[in-house]
Amino acid sequence: MADRAVAVRESDAGTHYEVVLDYNAGLNHYDMGYTLGQKIINKNSKIEKLLDDYVSHLGFYFGDELIKRAEHIKVNIPENYLHEIQGMAKSYAESGGKIKGEFEHDGEISETELFILNLVPDIARATQCSAVAVFGNSSKNGNTITGRVLDWMPHKSLTKLHSITTIKNRRGNSAAFIGFLGFGGVITAINEKGVFAGILDSPNGNGYQSQGRRSYTMDLRYALENFGSAKEVGEYMIASQREYTFSHLIFLTDKTVGLVVENDLSSPQNRKIRYRNSKLNFTDKTDIKEAIIAVNSFVLKGNFDNHNSSGYNKRRWLSYINNLKISNVDDEKVDFDEIKSALYTNSRTQQQIVYETTSNRLEIAFKNSGAFEPVKLDY
C-alpha cells in the first residue's frame, strides 16, 4: 500500500524532484508523511543534510526564537497536515536522526527543525516575489494566464531541493504544490479546478506575535483542497477568526478572474480582496482592462501604504505595466509567451512559473537551470 501511495523521483531534466502523495491508496496522513520521509532518504541520503543546512542558515539570523515561534503555531496546524509532518519526522529519527527537540547544525533533522522548515513563511520573513495575470478579453485565447516569480532568501541548498508535489485526495480537490522538498504548505499551488495560488510577503511594520496564531500557508492548502474558485479561497483566507503572524498577500486566479488577498493585519477591516477595478492608493494602473499585478505591497485604498515609500516595489509594478503595454500594442491582448517575457526577476529568484487555465499549460524555470520547461499536471 505504501509503495503505491508515495513516489519520489528526479525530473527528466534534473531540475527538481517530482513527488506524488496518493491518498486514494488508503494511507492516513501520519503514515503518508512517514513513507514520504523514508522515500526521500532512500532517494538521496544527502537530502537530510541539505535540509539541515538550510534550517541552520535560518537559525544564524533568528536563533532559538524560531523554536518558540514554531511551537506556538504548530498547535493550530490542521490536524491532517500536522500528522504528515510528525510522520516524516519519525522516519528521519529512525534513519539515525536527532531527538525531537534538538536544533543544531549536524547534518540531521529533528522534529523541531522539520516544523521550522514547514513554517518558514510564518516565522521568518524570507520572500520578495511578484505576480501578474490576464484573463477574459485581455487574454489572447480567452484563458486566464498567470505569471509568478518566487524570490526567496538565497541559500545553496535551495537549488537542490526544488520540487513539485502532487497530492491526490480521496475527498476534496487534488492539487500540485510547487516549492521545496518536504514543505507541506503552499508557496505556489494549483488545484484540479484550475485555482492558482501564490504567496507574497508584505510587511506593515507591526510587531511579531505568534501566540495563538495560525500558519497561513497551511490554511491556504486547506482552502485549495476544499474550494473551487479564487473568490472562495480568498474569502476563506481573509476571515478574521483565523489570525496570522505576518501580513501578506495571496495572488489567486481561476478560469475567469484574477484577484489578490491583501491580509494587512494591522486591523481586521484591512483584510480585503483586491480586484482589477478596486480603488488603489496611487494612480499607476495598467491600461489593460482584465489584468492584475502584485508586488510586495498593499495597494488597496485605505490599507497600510508600504508601496509609495518603496522604490523597489514601485519599479517592479511599473515594469509589469510597461511590459503589458508592449505585449498588447497590436491587438490589445496578451498571450502565454508575453506573460513569460514580462516577469521581473533578480538574484533571489528561485522559480518562475507561468500557468494557463483550461488548457492546464504549465511552464517553470528553476534557478538551477534558468530555462523554462513544460510540466505536466497529473491529478
Rank of each mutant, 00 (worst) to 15 (best):
R213S: 08
N206W: 04
K160W: 02
I199F: 13
G182P: 13
S210K: 05
G198E: 05
L181W: 13
A197V: 07
R213G: 04
R148F: 15
V186R: 05
D122Y: 01
N169A: 15
N143C: 05
S130K: 03
W152L: 12
P121N: 06
H162A: 10
N169M: 15
N191D: 09
T144A: 03
F180C: 10
E192G: 06
S139G: 02
P203D: 10
G212M: 10
S130N: 13
R125L: 06
L161R: 11
P121F: 02
G184M: 07
G185Y: 06
Q209W: 05
V186D: 08
H162M: 13
T146N: 03
S210M: 07
S130G: 02
L200G: 11
S202F: 09
L200A: 08
R148Y: 15
D122E: 14
L119R: 04
G147I: 02
S157L: 14
F177S: 11
K140I: 01
I167M: 15
V195D: 08
L150Q: 09
G136T: 00
V134D: 00
S157N: 10
T166C: 11
L119V: 07
L119S: 02
I190C: 05
L158Y: 09
T127S: 11
I199T: 14
W152C: 04
N191H: 10
G194C: 07
L161C: 13
L161P: 10
E192D: 13
A176K: 07
N143V: 01
V132H: 03
V120H: 00
Y208I: 15
L181P: 12
N118M: 03
S130I: 01
Q209T: 11
I178G: 09
Y208W: 09
S163D: 15
R148Q: 08
I190T: 03
I123L: 11
N137E: 13
V149A: 04
N204S: 10
I187C: 05
C129S: 13
F135K: 00
T165S: 15
W152R: 05
G194L: 05
R213E: 07
C129W: 00
I145S: 01
F177I: 13
S138E: 00
N143D: 06
A176R: 06
K193G: 02
N169S: 11
T165K: 11
N204I: 11
Q128V: 07
T188G: 08
G142S: 03
N137D: 15
M153I: 15
D201N: 14
N141W: 00
N173T: 12
F196M: 03
G179C: 07
G179T: 14
T188N: 07
F177D: 04
K168H: 13
G207R: 08
N173E: 06
V134N: 00
D122K: 01
N191G: 11
T127G: 01
I199Y: 09
K193F: 07
I187F: 10
P203H: 07
A175I: 04
I178H: 04
K160V: 00
G172D: 12
K140M: 01
E192C: 04
A133D: 01
I199Q: 07
